[in-house]
Nucleic acid binder design. Sequence first.
DNA 1: TCTGGGGTCCTAGGACCC
DNA 2: TCTGGGGTCCTAGGACCC
Length: 425
Amino acid sequence: MSKVILQIDGNNFYASCEQTINPSLKGKGLVVLSNNDGCIIARSAEARKMGIPMGQPYFKLKNKLTQLNINVRSSNYELYGDISNRLMQLLRKNCEELEIYSIDEAFGTIKRPKGKCLYQWGKDLRALVYQNIGIPISIGIGETKVLSKISNHLAKKIKNNSGIFDIGIIQNKDHYLHQIKVGKVWGIGKRMSIWLKSKGITNALELRDMSSEQIKGKYGVVGLRIQNELKGNLCIPIKETSSEKKEICVSRSFSYPIDTFEDLNQAIIKYVLIASAKLRKYNQLSSAITVFTHTNIHSKDFFKSEATEKISIPTSNSRIMIEKSQSLTKKIFKPYKKLIKAGVILHKLQSNKYEQNLIFNSQNIQKDLYLKRLDNIIDNINSKNGIDTINWGSTIIKKEWSPSRKKVSNIKTTDIENIPIIYAN
DNA sequence: TCTGGGGTCCTAGGACCC
DNA sequence: TCTGGGGTCCTAGGACCC
């Protein structure tokens, strides 16, 4: 028995989620848009076949989508998050280890009975997931993360293999690695691709067999690790327990450019509240906060601005965070700049297990406790009734610049009223 | 007119220390 | 006036991921 790495992901995840809660969309052209209905971030298989590209701005393709009769949805992250949780629970039951890598993707491990292909095992898991969650998945199997990623890619690419591929059982992998373009290898992005191509390296096979010295010289341990993984040596381990977050970022594009301090300030306060609520949810504290904003990145006079402040006593308290952010917002604001986006980053996160008390000032202890209780009450109410149910006075704002989601599916799996009814024959 | 949001890891270089 | 060598910690920024 030897351990193998599995790489499992939901096919066209956001589109599949929309199809699951609204089966009339199944088998049809469908795209899902990013926040603010900006870009296309997911496509059903049918939309893909019709030639709709990924990541393109919606406005450029609006007419084409209408012509082709393709359905359009704004993203509904509450729904996708809920389906993702259920998917991961099911995968965890069926793997020995599981690392949740993103909303639609996980790495797992299982033991391979000596010399045995895991095709049937994958086929059973796939059927189980489809039956319970309603989402089609692909399964890639290999000796390392990089190889299991390639396997998953082949699982999708090669027809008639039911979304499963096991490269780990193949002795001579050259034939398959040759088919994988170097830019498709996990960890090789745009920059590294350009450099590799300039050295005559165009596919995964050539990357595996190129000079280690050369890649190490240019990209250090990062490059070397990818090459080693291609050779079948495990260098990037499975991180089973979802390690604590290192930073939390909340940022949004506005529905139209803003240029007043008041608008920026209100946006930042709102993002600070969302970020500090997340921090409390993860039982963490932060000791540094950054706020940033910028104008349109595609414009000639692109302007960006950011500022950071340390927090001497790590906290997750909304009010303290708002106070800190206020001076930062003043720093980053510049008049007459057409700002299209702003955000907040909380960093230097730590567990709240060892939270320091304000031992030097008994009045502060009282105030601290009071603020914590207030945060808890607001969090509880908002988690049950929606993020905006109770808000701080400073965030009661004119809403026009808030990101727009015109085509959001109004069905939530978290709301019993919205659960689809299925009639048995 | 309109181009997402949220992360991680690594490295170089500065600040500081002895 | 001359001004070493080695170490750590922190930060900004690059590159990558989904």
